[in-house]
Write a protein that binds this DNA or RNA. Structure first.
Lengths: 136, 136
DNA sequence: CGTATATATGTCGTATCACGATATATGTGG
DNA sequence: CCACATATATCGTGATACGACATATATACG
């Protein structure tokens, strides 16, 4: 483990890349918060909206997979989203165990604004991120 | 706010990009945890090591800036790192208010292993990330 | 000089939330 | 129709980032 050869430039590249990712994450947190969402809630909405292969909504287990969180955490996340009126739960007619989670009009609107802001931000930092990535 | 024009492809690109970032973050969490670190602790160590312009260590406020967290959170983060024997606090001879945080031998070793794993991972997902970024 | 102000670090109580362990419901295969 | 897998739900716990506040040091400027 201790015979890895890591140069100072490697460390610098890693630090710079993580800093850039953290900057984007912090931007996203701010935007989400300004819209009354937590980052996780935002990502859940985006996963539902951005999965065209699932037009009837995402199952809770799919949300967990997409966000790489535990299933029970996804349940709780959906609890909070539903309580805030941002998603609806509908049981899957094809499989009674599954709950399909869909957006509401309100979350569609919120997500639209958030996505516009994120697109702007990403277009602004795109070249920086590309340059940082190419250092690896 | 509600007249933003966002296409389905935009949503899909955003969701895919965030999923990739989350994947990397989850990978990093796992690796850090396997080394006995939290993600924040890892990033703090990396910031200290990867800032060549500060060879005597980073001040707590600089760590806060780099990680984009509040100053008091940085203090607490350094508390936990110091307690784990992963950093040392030294007051800055040039400014008695500042505390310079430096790595220990142990954290140098841990960070070396973590960095090697992250370099491998990043080289593996680099082309994927580049492709996702170019969609914006 | 000395006082006001700014900056850096530190302390403490609080709230959030992801998790592990566990429970219940539904589907599936022999 | 029974064993097992899968999906969702519940609950207690721990970790930690934060806001509000406190203290120490530096700097500006009369």
């Amino acid at each position: 483990m201790s015979d890895d050869l890591i140069s100072d430039q490697d460390y610098e590249a890693l630090a710079a890349f993580r800093h850039a990712m953290r900057r984007f994450a912090a931007f996203s947190e701010m935007e989400a918060k300004a819209s009354g969402l937590t980052p996780r809630q935002h990502q859940a909405l985006l996963a539902i909206k951005g999965t065209p292969s699932a037009p009837n909504g995402l199952a809770i287990s799919q949300i967990a997979e997409h966000l790489l969180i535990q299933h029970n955490s996804a349940v709780e996340l959906v609890d909070r989203l539903a309580e805030a009126g941002l998603v609806r739960r509908q049981s899957d007619p094809a499989d009674g165990r599954r709950i399909l989670v869909t957006l509401t009009e309100r979350s569609e609107t919120v997500l639209r604004g958030l996505s516009a802001a994120h697109l702007r931000e990403l277009r602004g930092i795109r070249s920086t991120l590309l340059a940082l990535l190419r250092r690896f």
